[in-house]
Every structure is written in C-alpha cells, then in structure tokens.
C-alpha cells in the first residue's frame, strides 16, 4: 500500500518532475538515480525515466535490461520505492495511437512499413514530444480509486546539456509539422507540465572548465526559452584535506618537505626523505587542481542556482555508492 508522503525540508517541495541533464562524462545518469533514491526515501514512490535507450539505469541498479514497462528497481532508505522505465519512442507512439485513437493494429502495420521509425526519427519534434509526453503523463497520472497521484515524483535522465532546451521545448519544435490537431494538443499538454513550477531542470557538472561552461550556456538557453532551471549538481568533488595555508603554499609549489619528513618519522615510515619528496609532488598537483576547482565553483555560482555537491567515491560506482550519494542529496536538501 502506498501511504501519502510526509512533509520534509527540500528545496524542491512542489516539484514533481525533475529533469536531470549534464555534459557527457559528468555522471548524469548516476546523479539522476541518486536523486530518485533520495526523493523516494521515507516512504515515497518515484519513477526514474531513461530516454536514450542506453540501459544505464539497469546497469546502475544491477538489474537485467529494462523493458518499456514501469518496474521496481530499488527500495529507498526508510521504505520508499524507485520504479524505472526505459521509454522507446516507437512504443510510445504505438501507445499513443492506442490510447487516443484505438489504432494499435494500424500502428503495428505501419511499424512493419518503417513508418513509425520514420515518424519518430525525422518528423520534427515528434520523438521528443513522445518521450517528454510519457514523463508528463506519469507526473499527472492518478490512482483511479483514491484519486491520489500515483508517483510522488518523476525523475528523468534527460539528453545532454547541449540538447536539453530543444528537447524540452516541444511546443516550438512540433510547430514545424503541426500547427493544429492532436499532436499539437499533445504538445500543449506536455508544455503545461514542463513550463510550470512543477518541473525543475537540474544540471550535473564537474569542477572542470568545459562542463562548467556548458552548464552556464545550457542554463542561459533554458531561461531564454522560459523553462524552469532547477539546481546545479556538482559531481565527483574531492574533499579538501589540507588547511588553507598549506593549500596555498602547495599550489605555489612550496611544500615544506622538512615538515613532511618530521611527520613521516612520527608515523614510523621508512625512507622519510624520499617519501616526503613523492608526497610533496602529489600535494602540489592536488593543490593546483583544487585551486582550479575553486575558480570553476565561483563561475558556477554566477548562475544564481542552488548548488549541491556529490563526493568523488574512491571505488567503482555500485549500489552502496548510489545510496551514499542519495543520502548526500537528502542532507543538502536537494531531495
């Protein structure tokens, strides 16, 4: 039985559709999955949607490849459920034909002719309106008996930053093919959710120049289209272990190896002089990287959005790691 969720402190209370985007390699899918787990914790029900057919969610949750069907993939801390769905545009189109026009048979025939493939691939915006349509349908879906929303939140692992605005702005995109008619109406219904305060678009980035710049460009583009920017999730952040003074000295190349030698002797390690030299080289590299990251962080703050940070985990990403990231997002009130 699904019990209504408790109120909680979150920056996104009232948001029911979380769209997660990011440059390739930033860990967009991982962040989306962690957010879904975080949102589900404490007895909520969350749907995690994948739209690019990569089966990244199945790999993360260590389950067999997911079909076009909502399946439970994880139990959240404190007893919530994460369901996952891989949306296939052709199947979504068949669904759509069946749902609104009772045309499933005709749809199947058209699939054989390659029409569905054609339509979902090159008809302007049709593919995107089908994918976003599936997400917004899940957001609006209510239990027939209780009248309550079936999902407390929907998280979408969306296309990368460079394509996100065009992907979400289905209204403008379908204008090329349909000025009136059912597709147009469908697009309007999608935009009612996506353009509303019920939706937030989060950007996943690393503390590196290129992803950060792309994030800022993406936010600007999104805002220009009148779509709701959410938060910035900074992924793979190293924890600062050095004091500010030591950090500054190391960044300038000036590590006090004499102090390291003393420390190493106290720790009882062999060959303290040689070890100190090696450690010193690593400290300098680390400090330079951290200094660079500090600049990037300042650049990101210019966007004026809430920033959340996920730690760099030393081991391979696994379920335990995912739960840890979900906990971080809860603590920082992103979920």
């Amino acid at each position: 039985m699904h019990t209504p969720p408790r109120a909680r402190d979150s920056d996104w209370e009232g948001v029911r559709l979380h769209v997660v985007t990011g440059k390739g390699g930033t860990g967009k899918t991982t962040a989306a999955a962690a957010l879904a787990l975080g949102l589900a914790s404490g007895g909520r029900k969350v749907l995690l949607i994948e739209v690019e057919g990569r089966q990244g969610i199945a790999q993360l949750f260590d389950v067999p490849p997911l079909p076009y069907e909502e399946r439970k993939v994880a139990v959240a801390p404190g007893g919530g459920d994460v369901f996952a769905l891989v949306v296939d545009p052709e199947e979504a189109l068949l669904d759509y034909l069946a749902m609104f026009y009772n045309l499933r048979q005709a749809g199947r025939a058209l699939t054989r002719l390659g029409v569905m493939d054609f339509a979902t691939t090159i008809a302007p915006g049709l593919r995107d309106v089908l994918l976003t349509g599936k997400a917004t349908e899940a957001v609006r879906r209510r239990d027939k008996r209780t009248g309550r929303f079936v999902y407390d939140a929907v998280v979408m692992d969306a296309p990368p930053t460079g394509r996100i605005t065009r992907f979400l702005n289905v209204n403008t995109e379908v204008a090329g093919i349909a000025r009136v008619g059912p597709i147009r109406n469908h697009a309007d219904a999608v935009m009612k959710v996506i353009g509303s305060p019920q939706t937030a678009v989060h950007f996943v980035t690393l503390l590196e120049d290129m992803p950060a710049q792309e994030t800022l460009d993406g936010i600007e583009e999104l805002r220009a289209a009148g779509l709701p920017a959410g938060g910035i999730i900074v992924n793979m952040v190293r924890s600062p272990l050095l004091s500010d003074d030591d950090m500054a000295a190391a960044a300038g190349g000036g590590v006090d190896t004499a102090r390291l030698v003393l420390g190493l002797k106290a720790a009882g390690l062999d060959e303290p002089e040689r070890t100190a030299e090696g450690l010193s080289a690593e400290l300098v590299g680390h400090a330079r990287r951290v200094a660079l990251e500090r600049n990037v962080r300042e650049v990101l703050e210019r966007a004026g959005l809430p920033c959340y940070e996920l730690p760099l985990l030393p081991d391979d990403m696994d379920l335990a790691g995912l739960y840890r990231l979900a906990g971080e997002l809860r603590e920082q009130e992103a979920a």
Binding site: L260, L262, A266, A267
Partner: peptide, 11 residues
Amino acid sequence: GRGLTEAALRL
C-alpha cells in the same frame, strides 16, 4: 608537520 603529513598520506 603531523597535520600536513596526515593529509598528504590520505591523499
């Protein structure tokens, strides 16, 4: 040197 060394070793 202990604080600095500890940090360096953890890194």
